[in-house]
Design a protein around this nucleic acid. Structure first.
Lengths: 152, 152
DNA sequence: CGTAATTAGATTGCGCGCAATTGATTTGCG
DNA sequence: CGCAAATCAATTGCGCGCAATCTAATTACG
């Protein structure tokens, strides 16, 4: 069994594919784990991420939320409309810059943060690893993301 | 500045959020990096994953592809229909078990593997890390996925 | 043997995710 | 000042991703 350049390229192809599958699968697994936990709250996973962003800082414009989550108005506009419909947020035009729409939490939306604490706890258990391990994985993913985005 | 139970709970919510964001963001970054590379081939990212599965083993039934990628027929049926429309695969009922539909590569679909080698090379560069690092990340993701799925 | 339970795939409905376009507002520059 | 360029959100169109439902085929069991 001799090792050739072609072998190592095949190795790279397989690893690339495996990494694709791994990211893809892990993201879906995350999604599936959150879904039943978020359903009682009346939130989808992306909606939950938006709520977290608002719990951290209320009254952000759509653009700021989009930058934080990496989403554009094509995704956020209808999503925010549904959050408004559900009574979690209110949308109003910024008086100083009427291009912007600021998203603010309603009382109901702010209260939801307390219920969400249970979700966090359940996910923590499902992760089944220490905070250090989770942090290490997170750092690896963030670094990967940075490299991918800066390369393009 | 006193440290209270509420503080530490907020800390956990944020860390949880960061891991969410990290997976979410990395998956999107992967998607965005692949998209312009796959467009010339006429494939979307999920279609590319299906093609990889078929290049590894031709003639699989829909169910087997779904198990490999974690997708159900609701996603695969229309996706495969588009791959068939594009001339990359053919679908035919298994003669021994007419419930199953086996997906086989056309000549055009098999040839596409050669063009896809360039995609792999570009991604390898975009990853910007050693094979060992990529493998470690892959293992961490696979382990995470396993824990999440087994917990639910 | 025959009916019930299981399995495979397709279809429908809804919510992202993103490119492209549109419309309104603000900014910048001559 | 005035017009062009830039910015922000909304909308449209298409392709997933998944739950729920449906049909057809196979298997299991009495």
């Amino acid at each position: 069994m001799q090792k050739t350049a072609r072998d190592s390229q095949n190795f790279e192809i397989k690893l690339d594919a495996q990494l694709c599958f791994a990211i893809y699968g892990a993201a879906h697994a995350f999604n599936r784990t959150y879904k039943p936990l978020l359903e009682p709250l009346g939130l989808t996973y992306p909606q939950y991420l938006v709520m977290i962003a608002l719990w951290e800082e209320d009254g952000q414009p759509v653009k700021a939320i989009g930058d934080r989550l990496g989403l554009d108005s094509g995704t956020l506009s209808p999503l925010l409309k549904r959050l408004e419909q559900a009574g979690f947020v209110a949308r109003k035009r910024d008086r100083d810059d009427e291009r912007q729409v600021r998203i603010s939490l309603t009382g109901k939306g702010a209260e939801l943060k307390n219920e969400a604490a249970g979700v966090t706890e359940a996910i923590g258990k499902a992760l089944g690893c220490s905070l250090d391990e989770a942090a290490a994985l997170r750092d690896g993913l963030v670094a990967l993301k940075e490299r991918l985005l800066s390369a393009s």
